[in-house]
């Protein structure tokens, strides 16, 4: 692939298409963050492919000046897997929403994560069906009133990050659409040599405005979010005076106030991004506990799926040596008929 002649800027990765999301949609912020990451990593637009399913988020590929494939509902991870099988050199991003990836396409998400091809996979979670006008999402909280649940949902929601960890993802992160460091999270997901999974809490201004306000409200965000840093104690709060420790009954994480009740910093767990059990506990935190934002798990596999397949195929080719298809057909029981 030819390197671009000059360093590209974020706006160079915008396509000539008019962006058609609602004014104020969280998707705009994510698009900008992705463009910034593409510029940061010096992505070759010709060597980059955006693949999506169906939904508001899935319009994403039209707005990026790379190769793009707008698929069918839920199937983007499968299509992207096929792209990587055919050409492991391509830098492939997969974009979808909570309906796309956790409802109709949840199977593909699970199996793609366990196979671990080298993809960057962004799940825009707005806890509602936007494109079809506001129906109940698999991530919506109990009691959600929507056109399809006018009496309030009686269902239990899926947690995207816990789903990903359970499926065997080797990289799991959570970000917020308007978060300043979304770029850093996306960059880390992209740099991960396997499937980099990022759940992005994304505000739907029309059908589910303020769904994440309790977490994202600027005045109180420091109290309601925790940003794990590898090797550092799990602290949060404006004064960084609160921490997480393992509850004495082993049921999960609990909050302690440093200095209060004789609790000291040494009781706070140090974050290790390769610790699956800890990642699962962090992914499970819900208000009133602080919601974990950032890279929750990053534990690369030795080799990605498509590279492992290629390695097997190369070994097979080496084993059979010069044998071509014609020679293979003559292996096994054959017989000669003479005139």
């Amino acid at each position: 692939m030819n390197a671009p002649a000059r360093a590209l800027k974020p706006k160079d990765y915008a396509s000539d298409q008019e962006v058609r999301w609602c004014a104020g949609c969280g998707d705009y912020a994510v698009l900008k963050a992705v463009e910034r990451v593409l510029a940061e990593i010096g992505a070759d637009p010709a060597g980059t492919v955006f693949v999506s399913g169906i939904g508001c988020a899935a319009r994403f590929p039209y707005y990026v000046a790379t190769y793009g494939f707008h698929g069918i509902h839920g199937r983007a991870p499968a299509i992207a897997t096929g792209v990587k099988l055919a050409n492991p050199e391509l830098d492939v991003w997969v974009i979808g929403g909570d309906g796309d990836m956790l409802s109709i396409g949840a199977t593909h998400l699970a199996h793609t994560l366990r196979r671990n091809p080298d993809l960057t996979l962004l799940l825009f979670n707005n806890e509602v069906y936007g494109l079809t006008k506001g129906q109940l999402s698999p991530t919506a909280p109990p009691g959600s009133r929507t056109p399809t649940s006018p009496l309030g949902s009686v269902e239990s929601p899926l947690s995207a990050c816990r789903f990903a960890l359970a499926a065997g993802a080797r990289f799991v992160a959570r970000g917020i659409d308007t978060q300043k460091d979304l770029t850093g999270i996306l960059r880390a997901a992209h740099d991960h040599p396997g499937t980099g999974f990022v759940e992005i809490l994304q505000n739907c201004i029309v059908y589910n405005d303020g769904a994440f306000a309790a977490i994202t409200e600027r005045a109180t965000a420091a109290e309601h979010q925790i940003h794990p840093v590898h090797g550092e104690p799990l602290l949060f709060g404006a004064a960084r005076d609160k921490g997480l420790r393992l509850a004495a009954d082993g049921s999960g994480l609990e909050v302690i106030e440093i200095g209060a009740d004789g609790a000291g910093l040494e009781e706070v767990i140090r974050f290790d991004r390769t610790n699956l059990a800890l990642a699962t506990m962090l992914a499970s935190l819900e208000p009133p506990l602080p919601v974990a934002i950032g890279v929750l798990y990053d534990n690369p596999a030795p080799v990605s799926y498509e590279r492992a397949l290629r390695a097997q195929e190369e070994a097979e080719r080496a084993r059979i040596g010069e044998a071509d298809l014609g020679a293979m057909l003559r292996q096994g029981p054959v017989w000669m008929v003479t005139a």
Partner: peptide
């Protein structure tokens, strides 16, 4: 697989055809 074929046992029929479409898209 040493003779120029990559085989993919997909998680379901839909993933199988979609991966094939992705492969064709990629050349």
């Amino acid at each position: 697989r040493g003779y120029g074929v990559t085989t993919f046992q997909a998680e379901d029929e839909i993933a199988a055809v979609c991966a094939a479409i992705g492969a064709s898209y990629a050349g």
